[in-house]
């Protein structure tokens, strides 16, 4: 039973390291990052590498100086799990191919896999994002929203580091200063915000701020006119 647990644990260590790596690349939508075939394959490769390392350690009977059987087994599991992850991310040397420096080693293989994961996740997210941003930001005025909406979202998030706030502000400035239609600016604002706070927070913020973010209507609706205070009341 212990042996099965050890093999499961070493696989879990590898998969967990891979999962943390993927989640850190897609902080806004971690579930989406893991929910694609390339991502599953990436986790599997990490788990198999850890299991392979444990297999090698067992074949050569390395006990790392631990004599007690149970403790030696778990020492092997931990060292195999994390050791394999370190080796998998190492590059042994760099070769020059034309003007380019190419790192040679297991990391090259992992990088290629990560690119596949990125493309898979990006494709999946891009389709959904485009539709969501168009819908959420449809009636939003960029001029009214570019300060209020991000401030509200960031306040909801509470913990966005100052460096990331600075970088986000720079994005907003670029959009604000660009000569493009207000609609495209609103879409870009929504996209930039969604990358920082995620879809749920953006939707909630737009819902809460509601009318305050919409362009001033030249002809207020009858319902709104009836709400207005009479001029000589």
């Amino acid at each position: 039973m212990d042996a099965i647990l050890e093999w499961l644990a070493v696989g879990m260590i590898g998969a967990a390291v891979g999962a943390v790596e993927l989640i850190s690349r897609y902080k806004d939508e971690p579930d989406n990052a893991l929910n694609s075939w390339p991502a599953v394959f990436y986790l599997l490769i990490n788990a198999l590498a850890s299991a392979g390392a444990l297999g090698l350690i067992r074949v050569f009977n390395w006990d790392f100086g631990v004599s007690e059987a149970g403790a030696a087994g778990w020492t092997q599991v931990i060292l195999a799990g994390f050791g394999a992850m370190a080796i998998l991310r190492a590059s042994l040397f760099t070769v020059k191919v034309g003007a380019e420096s190419v790192p040679i080693g297991p990391s090259r293989f992992l990088e290629a896999l990560l690119i596949a994961v990125d493309q898979g996740v990006d494709r999946k997210r891009a389709q959904g994002r485009s539709a969501v941003v168009s819908k959420v930001m449809r009636d939003i005025s960029f001029e009214k929203a570019y300060l209020a909406l991000p401030s509200y979202c960031l306040a909801l998030m509470q913990n966005l580091p100052q460096a990331e706030q600075e970088q986000f502000a720079r994005k907003i400035n670029l959009i604000r200063n660009a000569k493009m239609s207000p609609r495209i600016k609103s879409l870009l604002l929504g996209l930039a915000l969604m990358n920082v706070v995620g879809e749920g927070v953006l939707k909630a913020a737009v819902e809460h701020l509601g009318e305050d973010l919409k362009p001033a209507s030249p002809n207020p609706s009858p319902a709104r006119r009836s709400d207005a205070r009479p001029p000589h009341a």
């Binding site: 570019y146 401030s151 706030q165 600075e166």
Partner: peptide, 9 residues
């Protein structure tokens, strides 16, 4: 919470 963003913009 959002002061850095506002100041920067």
């Amino acid at each position: 919470d959002f002061g850095t963003f506002l100041e920067s913009v």
